[in-house]
Nucleic acid binder design. Structure first.
Lengths: 223, 223
DNA sequence: ACCTGAACACCGTTCAAGT
DNA sequence: ACCTGAACACCGTTCAAGT
């Protein structure tokens, strides 16, 4: 007789964590509570997730994956239209999962699932005539709109300046636009691979916002 | 003989919490650990803070207060200069306290200390010729740059549409610009006091960013 | 009034033992 | 291999008792 309960898996553990966070809030996400959701004991989760912190990181990544999934289907002739609608769809996902913003902001490393969003964005922007440098600035600006600002791009090892070649290889294969852009931008900043000057990115986005506000002020004053 | 130890107070408890978060991370902020920092027992903290969640909210508010303190001193003839430098100073504070971004993003209500930043911003923008509607959009745009997006303005009671008149009175007294702007914008949206359409604010900021990127793309293409 | 010791219910995690 | 019971150290919080 086959077992009545479906076998546990990392995916099922993460899904149960999302369900608990959605219905009872992030504070209710305890190992025991998630296990109960799966009709098993807390200790069984440790066969699929190394620790509670890892589970929380997986929840943050799952939120990013849902964002990517929502955005992936959206295309438009005009790049502005496409990107605007993708950002709004992404925001809808974040609003549906109120625990996601705080959790993503608390992560030290950018969730791997979020890379696919940037890959798609860079592809769209490149097609629209963006050079790699501007595309790079753009994904920082737009990433901070969607996920909040604290997450840093291209620092998968948390500030270590020598990137994992295996990760780079996987990236090059599955994310050609992102890989090309990274290589190009890296070249420009003289070999400091995997390090974004996040203050410069912040200043750039801030400049976009301030310029736009000043333009709108003048438009209203002369209208 | 007077007691050797300084008496506990809410301020000392919050300061100890910040110290622990700065040196050992947010996870180390437990009631027992904070108490140890103050040479007392965990239970003593409950005379100054109602719960651990309240302590964490107080830490978020303290981060906002530090941001305000840093920004308050900065003035400039040009409003763009003043606001840019204040935002960068604010960001420096956030970077110095890496726990602050996640904690602020996790808060359901905007920390009271953050209001002073918006009061200052609205004052500066009004002086520079912004109407109240544009000033309102501006503080949403800039607030999301500094603190992240999730915190909602003017919803001190968490979505309840009838605002506390006492809070409004205090606000009117100490934050004239903010109070005037709130009243003006409220009037415009037909009586739905204390409710910002945060999706509209998001769309506005997104529009600023997208327009700025497109402008930069064209500038580079024609250069 | 402010502080505290003991206690309770709960948590993350380890480990030896089951299947 | 995957799962679990018992156990440990730790946590937030209550409460009665101290000063």
């Amino acid at each position: 007789m086959p077992p009545v309960r479906e076998a546990l898996s990392r995916d099922r553990v993460v899904a149960a964590g999302v369900a608990v966070a959605d219905t009872e809030g992030l504070a209710a996400v305890t190992m025991r509570r998630v296990a109960a959701e799966l009709d098993c004991e807390a200790m069984s989760l440790y066969h699929h997730v190394p620790s509670k912190d890892a589970l929380l990181a997986a929840l943050a990544d799952e939120a990013a994956r849902l964002v990517v999934q929502e955005a992936a289907a959206i295309t438009a002739d005009d790049w502005v239209d496409a990107v605007r609608r993708r950002c709004l769809a992404a925001r809808d996902v974040m609003v549906r999962h109120p625990w996601a913003a705080g959790l993503l902001a608390a992560q030290q490393q950018s969730p791997p699932s979020s890379w696919a969003l940037y890959e798609q964005l860079v592809g769209t922007l490149t097609e629209a005539g963006f050079d790699d440098d501007l595309a790079h600035r753009a994904i920082h600006s737009l990433g901070s709109m969607v996920f909040g600002f604290s997450t840093e791009l291209f620092e998968p090892d948390g500030g270590d300046s020598t990137p994992d070649p295996e990760i780079m290889a996987t990236m090059a294969q599955h994310m050609p636009n992102l890989a090309r852009m990274a290589a190009s931008v890296v070249h420009e900043v003289d070999g400091a691979l995997s390090v974004c000057d996040t203050r410069a990115e912040f200043e750039f986005t801030l400049g976009l916002v301030l310029d736009g506000l000043e333009r709108e002020r003048v438009r209203r004053a002369t209208a």
